[in-house]
Design a protein around this nucleic acid. Structure first.
Lengths: 334, 334
DNA sequence: TTGTAGGCGTTATCAG
DNA sequence: CTGATAACGCCTACAA
């Protein structure tokens, strides 16, 4: 029922080879035949079949993206950047929701192979031996986004988490804060958990400020964990004047918990977030935070995939700069 | 270089037909040969080529989703639901960011056809004649999500916007409010703009409450527009005690603008949102809002696509119920 | 139970 | 400039 290149050829009284040439404007036909064929294509409403093309060209013009959490605002930004780059390179993106389940991730990597995607962007999770096993023999480019691998030679794009957390803490210190707590990701999270804690501690040490274990609550990255984490933190550290949150969501949780305890931000407590998501500008008070250029990062990651695809040589990893975005949730201490 | 069914066949000393049968467990082989083949598949690390399969089966196990705004939190929820359903049906989803550009939308519809997707979910934009033109001769299922078409026979899934806005307004009225304003989407937005305004007015009329044109500011759905809209509204309607916002983002804009004018919510002003996004629970004060079950809606939309695919008969549209979620941004008036 | 051969819609390589 | 024809990797009658 679908109309193919053959139908066009027949109706135009030419061979399918000629039609194909015209479609891909390879040299070898008269202006005259071209017009005839083009017209027939119009009349018939013919459209080339990408699948058939892919079978030969071995290019599907499709890349896959693996994200742990599709509706996280950080992920949406990554995806947006990736989609944008893909579009510029004439490709589409398949999104896969792994839910941080290793098993599901494996299945998806598998699936993407079978779907013959041209490349993969792997986001925000630790890249395991198992994963590597799947992608290594196929020569398709893979790029890590907001994560990195110490074991395998896979390029990544991210910000320097330790450094960024250091900057956030330093900012608070420069504003005159001395008693600073942290609500952070889990210590076992080797990508975004421990490194940010390290950055925090490092800054405190540099400025010869005390840090106690109970002043750091490693609990997670989302709102609810921010609420819970702050409650715990403030009980253990009542005279704290500022807190660095491991993500904007956590920071909002802190804001909310503080509000419910009648602690006024920023008057009595300063809060700094991490990510600079849209919610950071939308909160009251607006959130001071360390900005991670998520859209650009996503874009870059996809661009690296396409570069590897075209040049067929490994590319370098890319570290994006972070910066502090000042809004209203931090107050200078006199 | 890629290893194919042929390689497997050769190494296992069977024909490719047999390998194929085993791969698709069609009847017709011994336990014995099966084991042999399976083992060779293991050894060789063979994986079937989905593209080649698709060429024959005419099924790509891929659906396309068109969204106007990839990083909108509402869209992420839609996408999440769609991805979930797709996964359950053994399919993947390609996301296309149309930016509300008709032209880009056309190109994407085109592209999805060429990629031979099994179906399409079209989200939150008005579906035009031009769009219909592209998808009509191909028999691929299309479902509209959070939009609908009065001109073409395409199933949709959404909530009843007018009714939902009516409910939101009625809720405020029941809480004792009489002077109610609205920050809404544009009147020319026939899907989510005018209908919600209609619902608002209808509720006011039902309860014989006055409404003036200046008490409705039709401006848009995002945060910035909420900020701007509220400023305009409060100037025109200073003794207003409550506002219904056309979206949660707008509501947050209202909250923020009110905060900056030292208007305390909910003490001096009540605010009700629309959508029940994650930000609604994360704001301070937490937002009372009318809930739209976005994830389920996305899921349903995709399910309809798959149903049409399997049964090959048109399905019915689906209207989801909305409900008021009470939190802290509305106060009862004595 | 198994193998052979034709075809899915294109592109690419030859001759003509 | 143009047209057969062989791939691409797989599935599926039809034979054996």
């Amino acid at each position: 029922m679908t109309i193919t290149i053959k139908d066009v050829a027949k109706k135009a009284n030419v061979s399918i080879a000629t039609v194909s040439r015209i479609l891909n404007n390879k040299p070898g036909y008269t202006k005259e035949t071209e017009e005839k064929v083009l017209q027939v294509i119009q009349e018939l409403g013919y459209h080339p079949n990408g699948i058939a093309r892919g079978l030969i060209s071995k290019r599907t013009h499709t890349i896959g993206v693996l994200v742990p959490q599709i509706s996280s605002m950080l992920m949406s930004k990554f995806i947006q950047g990736i989609e944008q780059a893909a579009h510029e390179y004439g490709s589409s993106v398949i999104v896969c929701h792994t839910e941080s389940k290793g098993e599901k991730t494996q299945k998806y990597l598998q699936l993407l192979q079978e779907k013959q995607v041209d490349g993969i962007v792997f986001t925000s999770e630790v890249f395991t031996q198992d994963h590597y096993q799947i992608i290594k023999d196929t020569n398709k480019p893979v790029v890590l986004l907001s994560t990195e691998s110490y074991d395998f030679p896979i390029p990544h794009v991210k910000v320097n988490d330790r450094h960024a957390a250091y900057s956030a803490t330093e900012y608070l210190i420069e504003k005159g804060h001395r008693k600073i707590g942290m609500v952070s990701g889990s210590r076992s999270d080797i990508i975004a958990g421990q490194p940010r804690i390290d950055g925090f501690i490092m800054a405190m040490n540099t400025y010869q400020l005390p840090v106690k274990d109970e002043w750091i609550v490693p609990i997670g990255f989302n709102f609810e964990e921010g609420v819970k984490g702050f409650s715990q933190l403030i009980d253990q550290f009542p005279d704290m004047t500022a807190v660095v949150a491991a993500s904007d969501e956590v920071a909002l949780g802190v804001l909310s918990a503080a509000y419910n305890r009648n602690i006024s931000v920023p008057k009595q407590l300063s809060v700094i977030g991490y990510d600079n998501l849209r919610i950071a500008e939308m909160s009251t008070p607006a959130l001071t935070t360390v900005s991670q250029p998520a859209v650009e990062m996503g874009k870059k990651a996809a661009e690296l995939v396409f570069q590897m695809l075209e040049t067929n040589v490994p590319v370098k990893s890319y570290i994006f700069p972070h910066k502090i975005v000042e809004r209203q949730s931090v107050k200078a201490l006199s």
